[in-house]
Design a protein around this nucleic acid. Structure first.
Lengths: 237, 237
DNA sequence: TAGCAAATGTCTAATTGGCGACAGTTCAAA
DNA sequence: TTTGAACTGTCGCCAATTAGACATTTGCTA
C-alpha cells in the first residue's frame, strides 16, 4: 500500500508551504508517510499528549482547540485540506499544545517520529523549509496577539472571517481583490464565539449589522460572505 | 577588538536556550558576532524594518512593542540580559515583527546576515538549536493567546508579573518553589497596563487588592513581589 | 410528515472595564 | 530647597459585554 504521490497532488499543493518545497524533497516527505483516517468526533490527539507524528490533512476538517480552566473550549483555528501541523512537538519533543478533533471524517498523511528523524538525516536540506514553517507559525501568532489586543470585537470578527476564507496555512494574504466571488463558511455562531472568546449573543448582534450592510448573509449553520474587501476595511477597527 | 567570550559568560549563560548549545558551537556563535551599543530611547529596529541581524542583549533592557492602528503602544514583552532575538526575520527574510526600543543604555552582540549564513553553513549542527529557539517562541505565543482569552484581567496581571520575574527567554517555568525570595520589578503601572491592553486605573485597583493580600508591595516606579506561589495560584482565575 | 435537536433571534439585568478628572506622592535636577 | 515631571490613588459615569431566559426557525431522520 504505497502512497500515490500524484493522486495527492491537489490536496498537497493547497499548502503554500509545501508547494515551495523542491519536488524531490516533496517526494521524500510523502515517501516517509503513512495514511491515517479519523471519524467525525474522533481526537487525533489531545493537549499534553506525547508527540507521535507530523501530519498533513488531506481531506476533512480538524478543529484545534483547548479547554480553559473553567472547562470552556477555546478554538484556536481549523485545520483544512493541505495543512501541515504538529511540527512543534516533533522538534522539541514536548507535549502537544492543543487538542485536535475531527469535525468531519478525515484522511491524513502521518510521518512518525522515527520516520521524521530518518527523513531529516537523509535530507538535511529540509531544515530550512521546516524552519520556514515555524516562522510562519510565529508570525501568525504574533499577528493574532496584536489583533486580539488592539481590535474591537467587531474588528476581530471580521478578521477571523477573512482568516476562515483564506483558510489554509494559518496564513492570510492581503492581496487586494474584487468581490466577484462568494464564500461559504460552514460555521455556527456559537463556534465563532468560542473562537473570539466572546458570547454567541454578541456575535449574533455583530453579524446582523454586517448582514444589514450587505457584506454577508446569515444562514442556518453557515455564513456566505459577499465582500472580502469590506471585511478587510472593517478588520481595522 | 575581538570579543572576549569568557567575559560575557555571565550574561550569555542567563539564556536557557544558549546554555544548552554545546560549548564549541557557543564559541562559533559568539565568534561571528560584533558588539553594538544603544543609548536609552534609541530604536534597535522598528516593525517593518528589513532584517539586519540576530542579536543577544548583554546588558540593559529593550522593550518589544508595536503601535496599534489608533496609535497606542502595545508592549509584547521586555528583552532582558541574555535574551536572543531577531531570529525570525533572519530565517524567513521578512520584515521585523516589532519595534525594539532601549529602555536603558544597552550593549548587544550582533550577528549580521552574512555572518549568520556563514555560521550556519560552517556549522549545520546549529539548525536543531535554532529550531528549538523558534519552538519556544511558538509555545510561548500559544500560551499567551490562550491566557489572553481565558483569564480574567486579574489572572492575566498575575501571569504577567510571573513572566516578568522569570524574565528571560520568553519562557516561564512552572517549578514549584518556596517564597523565600523577594523580586523587584522595575515597571510602572502605566506600562503594565499597556502590556495587558488595559487601563492604568484598573491595573492600580488590582495591584491594591494584591497588596492587601500581602502578595506584593507597590512602590514609586516598581513593585516588589513576595509570593510567587500565590501569584501562580491567582493566575488561574 | 412529525418530531427533535441544533441553531438563531431577542429581550433583560448585572458586571466589567475604560476613561476623564483631580488630588496626592515621589524623585531628581536646578 | 524648590520646582516640575512622572507616578500613584481614587471617584464616578458610561459603554460594551456577559449570561440567563425563552421564542422561533431550520433541517435531518425515523
Amino acid at each position: 500500500m504505497p502512497i500515490d504521490f500524484d493522486l495527492l497532488q491537489p490536496s498537497l499543493q493547497k499548502s503554500r508551504w509545501f508547494s515551495q518545497v523542491p519536488l524531490h524533497l516533496q517526494h521524500a516527505i510523502v515517501g516517509s508517510a503513512t495514511m491515517k483516517y479519523l471519524h467525525l468526533g474522533q481526537y487525533l490527539h489531545r493537549k499534553g499528549d506525547k508527540v507521535d507524528g507530523l501530519y498533513c490533512l488531506l481531506s476533512g476538517k480538524l478543529r484545534a482547540s483547548n479547554l480553559s480552566l473553567n472547562g470552556q473550549e477555546l478554538i484556536l483555528t481549523w485545520l483544512q485540506e493541505g495543512n501541515w501541523f504538529g511540527e512543534i512537538s516533533m522538534f522539541d519533543g514536548l507535549p502537544r499544545t492543543h487538542d485536535a478533533i475531527a469535525e468531519h471524517d478525515c484522511s491524513l498523511l502521518k510521518i512518525s517520529n522515527q520516520q521524521f528523524e530518518q527523513l531529516l538525516a537523509a535530507h538535511p536540506t529540509l531544515y530550512p523549509f521546516f524552519i520556514r514553517l515555524l516562522c510562519q507559525r510565529v508570525r501568525t501568532s504574533f499577528k493574532l496577539i496584536d489583533e486580539m489586543a488592539s481590535l474591537s470585537l467587531k474588528g476581530q470578527l471580521c478578521r477571523r472571517l477573512l482568516l476562515l476564507i483564506d483558510g489554509l496555512e494559518f496564513s492570510y494574504t492581503e492581496h487586494e481583490q474584487h468581490d466577484s466571488q462568494v464564500f461559504k463558511l460552514a460555521i455556527s455562531q456559537e463556534s465563532l464565539a468560542l473562537m473570539l472568546h466572546s458570547s454567541r449573543q454578541t456575535v449574533n448582534k455583530i453579524l446582523q449589522e454586517l448582514s444589514k450592510q450587505g457584506i454577508l448573509h446569515i444562514h442556518y449553520g453557515h455564513i456566505t460572505v459577499f465582500s472580502k474587501t469590506k471585511l478587510l476595511s472593517l478588520s481595522q477597527i
